[in-house]
Design a protein around this nucleic acid. Structure first.
Length: 670
DNA sequence: AGTAAAAGGTTTTTT
DNA sequence: ACCTTTTACT
């Protein structure tokens, strides 16, 4: 079944009788060990459907279950309950939610939905009046989520994480109250609510029924769970529940989401009698790469002590490449990638990693220019693009006519309809009244729209009526596309492209039997690829992976190129202030370095642009990342020659030309 | 009164 | 590039 487990892995697989914490360093065969343990549990006679496997992404869960099913002797192995905390909460709340006052048909708000709702509440409550600058809706939502998921007081969150918003404390309180009221009134839950309601149920009368569902609970990436999730784990365990948590405190990178490694450190306190097993043998990287990673990590002591080692003693020395500027970095990385391919390393075996989505902007241009196929993970998601949200709002109204947020978006999409008209229409349709007839009334012609929107409204009513007729989700998308074609030109410059893009959504929808299933799956497990590339050109083609370090968690490539290893980028400028933030940035660097199996290149441009927006010429001269500088001697250093700066000379020349042109022009009216 | 267009600002990372 | 605020226009 699972060949050649080392003694520690075997111990982790075989252990029974007390809660188990596996501290598994990067590349130490964590996934294999966890899968083997699930297998062992099933082969010992457990009912697979009474095993709960909580992972960080839905994909990780299905991969692991597939692995178990492939080797298990029990055919039913695929019936293991697997998923993220959020998707599991969703499933449980559909069954047990009634006792918490939830209707089974509740809607889940994703990040951007809750942000939009926060924005609506914000304007309805009348903040942002003259002269008074108010935090943006993203910031308001961020404050809220951090407060809830870390269970901290508003005042403390403001002081430590949002000092520039401290003036608005009272206003924020008002907004949060109203936000919560609306969520409840319209039967919608945001991500935080999913966890809060789950935790609430564990201490409610149905708690015992929930605890009786599972005999074995396994949790992956335990270092990235937050205090509420730790409570949930505690709350789902009976005294005899077999519990196993796996994690690496050196790879904790979700502190911004209120995850805390304290959950790992305090595991033995929360679960008395707990056993700990540590995995240190790395099967992924060569020693020269691990030496760098270990040296970087040793700059912080905020973790269980552990030193990775590998049987792969020999290997290429990692490269530290210094570039003149961002452009040189892009050119150099693109060239290095192609060189590696020449040597026989497919693009799929290589990856480019970076701290923030926009750090790859320059490289993306260069790759496109050279026709190098790539897929980007992280950054702005497909579902977050405005036109996709427009269409999803239409589906959500059909699914839940009480979804005020979706109505808001849809009504405002019509010509000549602004905030005031939306409010009037909401009243006329009775959307605020928890009244399910709003949709029926709208289709029947209720709601007086401005004359500019007459045609659009007629089309909308017809399309919605057709969609209620029980046609397949993909056909509904297709039918609604006609309405999009009508309103997009007012809203977007590139309307035609956006309308055409809706087809992609239709093909995604084709995989789902019902509209509501489609919507829920989409919010809980959104496709992680970025929008601009509509997926790999051809499935059997070769393509390069571009990814944020966060999205690269748990993955590995033969060759890894890290971009922008400069102070201000990694560590991020925003983390420089506090110690914990800085420690997290260091772990982020560690995660990036440990993704590489054979080859590692750390890139560092001497200058980079200051602001993420506006592609102007403003730039700063950077320092090499403070995490890399002390360990420079472990690298081979390489400097790409500065290109002749034509732009500078062009600028000088342009002054003269501009003067001449102006003189010529002036002559026309003088 | 209310919408559209123009100007001005802007703390990553994600379930 | 997007969101918020200000101003201009109907």
């Amino acid at each position: 079944m699972f060949d050649s487990l080392n003694p520690e892995q075997q111990a982790a697989v075989d252990h029974t009788g007390s809660p188990l914490l596996i501290v598994a360093g990067a590349g130490t065969g964590k996934t294999k060990t966890l899968a083997a343990r699930v297998c062992r549990i099933i082969d010992d006679g457990a009912d697979p459907s009474r095993v709960l496997l909580l992972t960080f992404t839905r994909r990780a869960a299905s991969e692991m279950i597939a692995r178990v099913a492939a080797v298990s002797t029990d055919r039913a192995a695929s019936r293991v309950w697997g998923g993220t905390f959020h998707s599991t909460a969703n499933r449980l709340l559909r069954n047990f939610g009634q006792s918490a006052g939830l209707s089974a048909g509740f809607t889940v708000l994703d990040q951007s939905d809750s942000t939009d709702l926060m924005g609506i509440v914000r304007t309805d409550e009348g903040f942002g009046e003259r002269g008074m600058r108010f935090p943006r809706k993203e910031t308001v939502a961020g404050i809220y989520s951090r407060m809830v998921s870390s269970q901290a007081k508003l005042a403390d969150v403001l002081e430590t994480d949002y000092p520039w918003c401290a003036d608005h404390q009272d206003d924020l309180r008002t907004i949060f109250t109203s936000y919560t009221t609306r969520k409840r009134a319209h039967q919608v839950l945001d991500y935080d609510d999913l966890l809060l309601f789950w935790r609430g149920l564990t201490v409610s009368p149905v708690g015992d029924a929930m605890r009786d569902l599972f005999d074995h609970i396994l949790i992956d990436e335990y270092q990235d769970t937050n205090p509420i999730q730790a409570d949930i784990v505690r709350g789902m365990c009976r005294p005899d529940t077999d519990l196993c948590a796996v994690g690496d405190d050196a790879q904790a990178i979700y502190g911004f989401r209120a995850a805390t490694v304290a959950n790992m450190w305090e595991f033995a306190d929360r679960f008395p009698g707990a056993t700990r097993v540590t995995l240190e043998q790395n099967y992924r990287s060569t020693m020269p790469i691990l030496n760098v990673a270990n040296a970087v990590l040793s700059q912080s002591d905020e973790h269980f002590s552990k030193e990775l080692w590998s049987g792969r003693r020999q290997g290429l020395t990692p490269t530290l490449a210094t570039h003149h500027d961002e452009g040189a970095q892009s050119t150099s990385v693109a060239t290095a990638v192609l060189d590696a391919r020449e040597r026989g390393m497919d693009l799929r075996e290589q990856a480019v990693l970076f701290r923030a989505g926009h750090h790859a902007d320059g490289l993306e241009l260069e790759l496109t220019r050279r026709d190098i196929p790539y897929v980007k993970y992280g950054g702005l998601k497909y579902l977050e693009s405005a036109h996709v949200k427009d269409l999803l709002a239409l589906l959500r109204i059909l699914d839940n006519p009480a979804d005020q947020l979706a109505w808001h978006r849809v009504l405002a999409s019509m010509e000549g309809v602004g905030p005031a008209t939306v409010r009037r229409l909401s009243d006329e349709l009775g959307i605020e009244n928890e009244d399910d007839d709003a949709l029926a009334r709208f289709i029947d012609g209720a709601g007086r729209v401005p004359s500019a929107a007459h045609e659009q409204a007629t089309e909308l009513r017809g399309a919605m009526e057709a969609c209620l007729d029980g046609i397949a989700p993909s056909e509904q998308v297709d039918r609604l596309k006609a309405y999009c074609a009508l309103v997009f030109p007012n809203r977007y410059d590139d309307a035609a492209a956006r309308v055409a893009d809706i087809d992609q959504l239709a093909s995604t929808a084709a995989a789902y039997a019902t509209r509501s299933r489609f919507l829920t799956e989409l919010t809980l497990d959104p496709p992680s690829k970025t929008s601009d590339q509509a997926g790999p050109p051809h499935l059997d083609d070769d393509w390069l992976t571009l990814s944020t370090i966060h999205s690269a968690k748990g993955l590995e490539w033969r060759s890894v190129h890290l971009l922008h290893a400069a102070d201000g980028n990694l560590p991020s400028e925003m983390a420089l202030g506090d110690e914990h933030g800085l420690a997290e940035e260091l772990r982020l660097m560690y995660v990036a370095l440990t993704r590489a199996k054979d080859e590692l290149t750390v890139n560092f441009p001497l200058r980079f642009h200051v602001n993420r927006y506006a592609h102007d010429d403003r730039h700063v001269y950077a320092q090499l990342s403070r995490f890399i500088d002390p360990v420079r001697e472990l690298f081979d250093e390489q400097t790409t020659a500065p290109e002749i700066d034509l732009r500078h000379e062009a600028e000088m020349a342009s002054v003269g030309v501009a003067d001449e042109v102006d003189t010529l022009l002036a002559a026309l009216w003088d």
